[in-house]
Design a protein around this nucleic acid. Structure first.
Lengths: 345, 345
DNA sequence: TTGTACGCGTTATCAT
DNA sequence: ATGATAACGCGTACAA
């Protein structure tokens, strides 16, 4: 014998398979006694229904999938908690699926949609750039959440919840300018990398321009090394170290993410310099460590909880009211902490 | 029409379904021309095979699943990378599945085993406590990796890779004792919580005993609040704050995890105290931030890469050579950094 | 090389 | 309330 199936249980109980099915799925039309008998034998024989067969037969499920690319980012966790709760509250079930870096998230979605008869999809994170044509293939409601949406995508064609990365990084750099910093370095991703770093760099450039500051290529910093995760502390450390050892002048660093900022801080401390007395440091994301780091780090905090709530709200609107697509751009907070100070004070 | 199936493709191409199937699955017995015609039409019509049907029909797959409980822990990521690579290298496919806190990981495994015809399973993290009887139900090879294995489980009955949490936390506390600290507080999980914290607390107690130091209940610190994640920075912060505001004397804190240690540091700084001059702080896990924090934090570093490699090695041994169960306990490193110092120096 | 027909394990429809 | 049976979409023996 291979694995126990519904037929085995039926045979053992001396009933038909449909009766067993009824027992499993809490159907009304079934005698309480036979039901409990069946349930008992199921336990005894360790019978586990085969999900593939169920999904195949079922014409629909109540599953919402959350596809997440680059699970590394710490703040996804708080969003996931919200998703989980809200989805459960609505009596749907929740499926978290991690998308590998090299995979195409839309392809994965398409597969899952068929395999699990999804009711809805949330795309979390990642730098979303897909042709409209491809997105059209997705037949169930979906929402793009967090993470820059490439300009390639027509925002009119799908639902999304995001912050404007260009504007928010502009906000930070502008703040540094207003503090009197004129030589602001940025630690960003290499140009070859399709990522949110592009957008944040753009905000940096725009802020310098608006503040009539020259943009020096020398102060745009990155390392092009595929073995280095560009959103890690180590990356920030390495890049900042190179910067400090060069003869490029600067009084502040804007790091593309909080983790990178932390790494940069370490490099600065190693050179015997102080923060913010010698250099001001700013991050982006608003993860826990910025509050707990010593000194605490100035950052851009995305309203992750609210964004997650809005994401799921929109998704359910789409599902239940089959309403129109809906997009929302959130404003982030500039959280001023100890790592930045007015120049010359 | 609902969704396109293999039949539709067959009809469109004017061939039989089996030919289409052969094209999809790279079977040898097929004419190159018909194959490319089929592949072309598949693309054009955006046909996506239904995985549920495939899994149902397939008697076996080449999938290795990694079940992970409490995805929060940062160092799981490095292990996952290893798993992913090694599994790919062996031409297996990799399935990551997150297990919710309230779910039973073995039940999930049992389901997945049937649904996906798994070849093997890795249980990652979590405080593993299941009856042998339950584990016996899993028919495919599996390895328990990282995370304390409850004493309930007979280690002789399954394969595992782990560090001895009792011994390693003993190592750390013993080190603190040898530095001259006689009043060492511990920030741990509440007794109600079934977790790895129990084991680390045990090591703490044993170390005090062996160093002829009295064990003061007052110095065993925790907060019993289900809304607080006990492995978070915030938890460390809150507990340390309570400790500092009590009149309990101590010169060192051993935190149950690095994140907790970071939180504790913050609380200490807020009170205007210094590390390590006023208090020594020690963590556990060896995550990135301990190196980048200011001051850098003394910790126990688990050899995660090696452990991951060993895990996958054992699993493949089990699968391919159907060899016997195998267990390995790794020794962790005591990484001495700036956050701890000899008392009175 | 290609097509037909059956079965994978389950749910749903229809009798009974 | 219960049981037989037809799908669900795919892979694969087997026949051609």
């Amino acid at each position: 014998m291979g694995t126990t199936t519904i037929k085995d249980i039926a045979r053992i109980c001396g009933v038909g398979v449909s009766t067993v099915s009824r027992a499993i799925n809490d159907h009304p039309d079934i005698n309480e006694e036979t039901k409990s008998l069946i349930l008992k034998t199921i336990k005894e024989h360790n019978y586990v229904p085969n999900n593939s067969a169920r999904n195949l037969k079922r014409s629909e499920s109540n599953t919402i999938a959350v596809l997440i690319k680059g699970i590394t980012n710490a703040f996804y966790n708080s969003m996931l908690k919200v998703f989980e709760n809200e989805i459960q509250k609505k009596k749907y079930s929740f499926l978290l699926h991690r998308v590998e870096e090299h995979e195409d998230e839309v392809d994965v979605a398409l597969q899952l949609e068929k395999e699990k008869r999804l009711k809805g999809i949330v795309f979390l994170g990642g730098y979303f750039s897909h042709s409209e044509e491809k997105l059209k293939q997705i037949k169930v409601p979906f929402v793009l959440s967090t993470g820059g949406i490439s300009e390639i995508i027509d925002k009119k064609s799908c639902s999304y919840v995001m912050v404007d990365d260009v504007q928010e990084s502009y906000r930070m750099v502008d703040y540094l300018c207003k503090l009197g910093h004129k030589k602001i370095a940025i630690i960003t991703t290499p140009p070859s990398e399709e990522s949110i770093g592009k957008l944040r760099l753009e905000g940096y450039k725009k802020a310098l321009r608006d503040n009539q500051l020259p943009m020096e290529e020398q102060r745009i910093r990155y390392i092009d090394n595929e073995h280095l995760d560009t959103f890690s502390m180590q990356y920030g450390y390495e890049v900042a170290k190179e910067l400090l050892e060069s003869d490029v002048k600067f009084t502040a660093i804007f790091a593309i993410s909080d983790s990178v900022a932390v790494g940069a801080c370490k490099a600065i401390f190693e050179k015997g310099k102080r923060i913010p007395e010698d250099y001001s440091i700013a991050g982006y994301d608003g993860i826990d460590i910025t509050y707990y780091y010593q000194p605490s780090i100035t950052t851009i905090r995305q309203p992750v909880i609210e964004m997650a709530e809005e994401t799921i709200r929109i998704l359910f609107d789409l599902i239940e009211d089959s309403s129109q697509r809906e997009g929302k751009i959130f404003t982030a907070d500039l959280v001023v902490r100890e790592s930045t100070k007015k120049l010359g004070e």
